[in-house]
């Protein structure tokens, strides 16, 4: 698989390590009333879709940036690649706007 890094261009997936579902960016609020349940779901439960999957890849043998890669888990086709920090910042901006 080739991951089209937003800063470095196309790179072999072998340069990366894989973490998992990109929802791991959205850590629950530890002060909420249902924090124990929310952290259980955050840490242990997964949608695990057959099809499009947003997931975290780490460019360990490269610039050590985290990426959010949208990939099809049935065909291995990579549909889009974003910097994880951009995704996290956009999510934070959305939360503060609410």
């Amino acid at each position: 698989m080739i991951i089209n890094h937003p800063l470095l261009g196309p790179r072999d997936a072998q340069e990366f390590t894989y973490l998992g579902d990109a929802t791991l960016i959205n850590r629950p609020d530890w002060q909420s009333d249902n924090a124990a349940q929310a952290f259980h779901d955050y840490l242990y439960l997964r949608d695990n879709p057959a099809g499009e999957h947003r997931e975290l890849w780490f460019h360990e043998q490269g610039d050590r940036s985290w990426l959010v890669v949208t990939r099809n888990t049935v065909t291995h086709e990579i549909l889009s690649v974003e910097m994880a920090r951009d995704v996290a910042k956009a999510a934070a901006a959305e939360r503060s706007a609410q």
Binding site: G20, D21, D41, Y44, L45, R46, D47, N48, P49, A50, T73
Partner: peptide, 18 residues
Amino acid sequence: GSSSRVMEKAGMRLPIET
């Protein structure tokens, strides 16, 4: 292998990745 896909039809999320 397909547990998440089948149990999703019963409304369950599992502690599993495929």
